[in-house]
Nucleic acid binder design. Structure first.
Length: 104
DNA sequence: TCATTGGCTATCA
DNA sequence: CTGATAGCCAATG
């Protein structure tokens, strides 16, 4: 199990209408400072079907980046009733999903 | 093993 | 609020 696989595993369990941050994922992995590594993992595994990477945003509420384009990411978020304003999530903390399972 | 890179985060001006 | 800086982590070559 590589680090990126663990990240994908967590992102995969994000339910519809929910979001999370790279830092939250890193923290769930036991490395609260590995936010960058998390992002790198998602970037290395572009799998928008199995892994809803578009539901992962930055801690400050900005959507951050996206392999398919930040604009595309925003569109997806907006399609999941997650309100985005000028590339920034409004109530990120309201949709923030952090009930991750440390897998097995 | 070292250097680079990447979808980050926190702090300061 | 925007921009710059420094820190931190993992994958790759």
């Amino acid at each position: 199990m590589d680090f990126d696989d663990a990240v994908l595993h967590l992102v995969k369990q994000i339910p519809m209408g929910r979001v999370t941050t790279y830092g939250a994922l890193a923290k769930a992995l036991g490395k609260p400072k590995a936010a960058r590594a998390v992002g790198g993992a998602l970037n290395k595994n572009p799998d928008p079907v199995r892994v809803p990477c578009h539901r992962v945003v930055r801690s400050d509420g900005s959507v951050g980046g996206y392999v398919l384009g930040a604009e595309r990411k925003i569109e997806l978020l907006d399609s999941e009733h997650i309100l985005v304003k000028n590339r920034k999530i409004r109530s990120l903390k309201d949709f923030l999903f952090k009930d991750f399972k440390p897998m097995d």
